[in-house]
């Protein structure tokens, strides 16, 4: 069926964008959870754990996202676990996100001066209390800008799972292109939708980078 690019095409793409947003959110929540655990273990855990996590981060950061997606999608189904594309997409993006966010957040925790730990220690706070009331609130403020900045990367990275057939915005664009044969219109619209999602995040990220001052936590 050949049809031409019109409003219904834009609607189709916007529905694809919905899946992009859902996938991005899922990736951020799952990846963010593991990233937090990894960042804490990487900075505070026992030496062997630190080494293993550092190794994991180095390996993932040295592998293209597309290869991680392929390994998850094709590879694991052979091992006997069968993943529907949504799960394979979410899992591989989460692994990738974990490696990068854990590194960013580790930097934020390590940016807190040693004296803050010592002061908290002198106040007889336990290790957990030091983290909870002194270190993490400050690290959180530093991390806001970079974290929102990385959300942009997450949204853009979800486009890669189009290549295993998960129908998000980019895949929707490919499908629409096959129907209309108007690639210029289609991919320009796709790009515009990505821009509409990512630019506000980039803008917010730049703004949040200004927040450095630490107010008391209530």
């Amino acid at each position: 069926m050949i049809k031409s690019f019109g409003w219904d095409s834009v609607e189709f793409l916007i529905r694809g964008a919905g899946w992009t947003l859902l996938l991005s959110l899922m990736t951020f929540v799952i990846g963010g959870f593991f990233a937090l655990v990894f960042a804490l273990l990487r900075t505070l855990g026992p030496k062997p754990v630190r080494v293993v996590i550092a190794g994991f981060i180095q390996l993932v950061q040295a592998t293209p996202l597309l290869i991680i997606v392929f390994l998850t999608f094709y590879g694991l189904s052979f091992v006997g676990l069968h993943f529907p594309p949504m799960m394979a997409a979410g899992l591989s993006l989460a692994v990738y996100t974990t490696a990068f966010l854990a590194d960013i957040w580790r930097g934020c925790i390590e940016a807190i001066p040693r004296q803050q730990w010592e002061a908290a220690d002198a106040l007889a706070l336990t290790r957990a209390q030091q983290l909870r009331y002194v270190i993490l609130p400050q690290a959180f403020k530093i991390s806001l800008g970079p974290t929102v900045g990385f959300m942009v990367q997450i949204v853009k990275n979800t486009s890669v799972v189009a290549l295993i057939g998960f129908v998000e915005l980019t895949r929707a664009g490919q499908l629409l292109n096959n129907m209309t044969f108007q690639p210029f219109h289609v991919f320009l619209t796709v790009a515009a939708i990505y821009f509409a999602i990512c630019y506000p995040l980039s803008f917010l990220s730049e703004r949040l980078k200004g927040i450095r001052n630490v107010r008391p936590a209530h």
Partner: peptide, 9 residues
């Protein structure tokens, strides 16, 4: 603010 894959397409 747009993915490399879309720029490529």
């Amino acid at each position: 603010n747009t993915p490399l894959l879309v720029q490529l397409f």
